[in-house]
Nucleic acid binder design. Structure first.
Length: 292
DNA sequence: TTTATTTGACCCGA
DNA sequence: TCGGGTCAAATAAA
């Protein structure tokens, strides 16, 4: 048993992230192919667009979570230098008292980089963030936004992230804006058991944002405290979703709830079960490949 | 009134 | 010296 855990810990998680990113890219491509042939005055077309956005949204969240965990290396001690020569950001944020004067030591260019992700939904990563700055960056068209964890005040969580729109994206005809999100410092806060769904999925079409507003309060069930080390090294725990079938079912409900409610587009229970099983099998298969 | 965001200034590191 | 990260006052929104 312990041998299994050890081999599990030695998995090259980058492979998993790579595969999920590939899947994400394929979804974007698929969406870009389908959207142009949809009739936008059609209600079902709206639902399809929304379904795509939700899928992309969810996969982004998972990728971000994995990257945050992997880059952290499972080390819960924020003071440990991982050998890359970088100092902990906390050291750079201390308030020093010298000769009776208080000096705020501004941080951080060397803050611990804990991950990065390219996403169409930079707001969606399971944490709540507060924007504290925006800067135009030289030689780039788009400004960079700076966010810190909303629990910095209450719990002293020093996690921050920067969000910058990628110029031109992957394809010129893409309707999805892509953002590069860089994460710094590990979250030390405890958050609620529910993952936070995005407020926005930015696209070039105002139609999409109105659709997504409707779903802004959607929540995915998550029974574990994903900020704490999880002793049971199962795939579903790694994804911070302890019950994969429940997670898949929630995904299905989010994706097709309105479609099924709005009649003509009827989806059988069998199809739902099949889809959920496929999601579970895909995930477990991916992990099994890594273990072998 | 409280909370969140914006934005110019300040500061640090390369 | 310059680029970029953060602060904090001003402003907007709830």
């Amino acid at each position: 048993m312990s041998a299994n855990i050890e081999s599990f810990c030695c998995i090259d998680h980058r492979m998993i992230i790579q595969e999920m990113k590939r899947e994400h890219g394929l979804l974007i491509d698929l969406k870009n192919h389908i959207i142009p042939i949809l009739r936008f005055n059609n209600v079902q077309a709206d639902h399809i667009v929304h379904a795509f956005d939700d899928i992309l949204c969810c996969s982004n969240g998972i990728i971000s979570k994995i990257q945050a965990e992997v880059c952290d290396g499972g080390n819960s001690d924020p003071g440990i230098d991982k050998g890359n020569g970088r100092n902990n950001a906390l050291d750079n944020m201390k308030v020093f008292i010298e000769d009776g004067t208080v000096t705020k030591k501004k941080r951080r260019k060397n803050a611990q980089h804990t991950g990065s992700v390219v996403t169409a939904t930079p707001d969606y990563d399971g944490y709540e963030w507060r924007k504290y700055g925006q800067k135009s960056i030289s030689k780039t068209k788009h400004s960079r936004s700076y966010y810190r964890c909303t629990n910095q005040k209450g719990q002293g969580c020093m996690a921050t992230k920067t969000v910058q729109q990628i110029e031109n994206g992957n394809s010129s005809n893409s309707v999805v804006k892509l953002y590069n999100v860089d994460y710094f410092c590990k979250h030390t806060c405890k958050v609620s058991n529910e993952m936070v769904c995005p407020d926005i999925v930015e696209t070039d079409s105002p139609k999409y944002s109105s659709i997504n507003d409707k779903y802004a309060s959607t929540r995915l069930t998550n029974h574990s405290d994903d900020h704490q080390p999880n002793n049971e090294m199962k795939p579903e725990n790694f994804f911070a979703v302890p019950d994969m079938s429940l997670f898949s079912e929630n995904m299905w409900d989010i994706m097709f709830e309105d479609v099924t409610m709005n009649s003509t587009f009827s989806l059988e229970q069998e199809a739902k079960d099949s889809w959920i099983k496929h999601q579970q099998d895909s995930t477990i298969h991916l992990w099994a490949d890594e273990l072998c």
